[in-house]
């Protein structure tokens, strides 16, 4: 079970969180013309990375905040966590 550092609550066990997928995906702006390819990339196409991955988790049984977690998909090592509005450098 992972041990995730919620930037709002501190270290919490994985079973308080739900997984939310790739955090690097950006939703196209509303009312903007987007090509089929762009839209498909946003909705469906994901890389199945081995290694460092920036992903979303929601602290559903805690503060209910969506957070970003930088995790290694192979080793499960968690490097950093960020608030929803924090820019990831």
């Amino acid at each position: 079970m992972l041990y995730i550092n919620c930037p709002h609550c501190g270290m919490r066990s994985q079973n308080e969180f739900s997984y939310g997928g790739d955090a690097s995906v950006k939703r196209p702006e509303l009312n903007k013309e987007v090509s089929d390819q762009e839209w498909d990339d946003f909705v469906y196409n994901r890389k199945s990375l081995r290694g460092k991955h920036l992903e979303l988790w929601q602290h559903i049984s805690g503060c209910r905040q969506w957070i970003k977690v930088e995790r290694d998909t192979a080793t499960h090592e968690i490097f950093r966590t960020f608030k929803a509005d924090e820019e990831v450098a």
């Binding site: 739900s18 929601q58 559903i60 209910r64 905040q65 969506w66 929803a84 509005d85």
Partner: peptide, 13 residues
């Protein structure tokens, strides 16, 4: 609820 929170916190803060 999670869906609404997702858009409010991440997409349209």
């Amino acid at each position: 609820l999670s869906h609404l929170e997702y858009y409010l916190q991440l997409v349209w803060p």
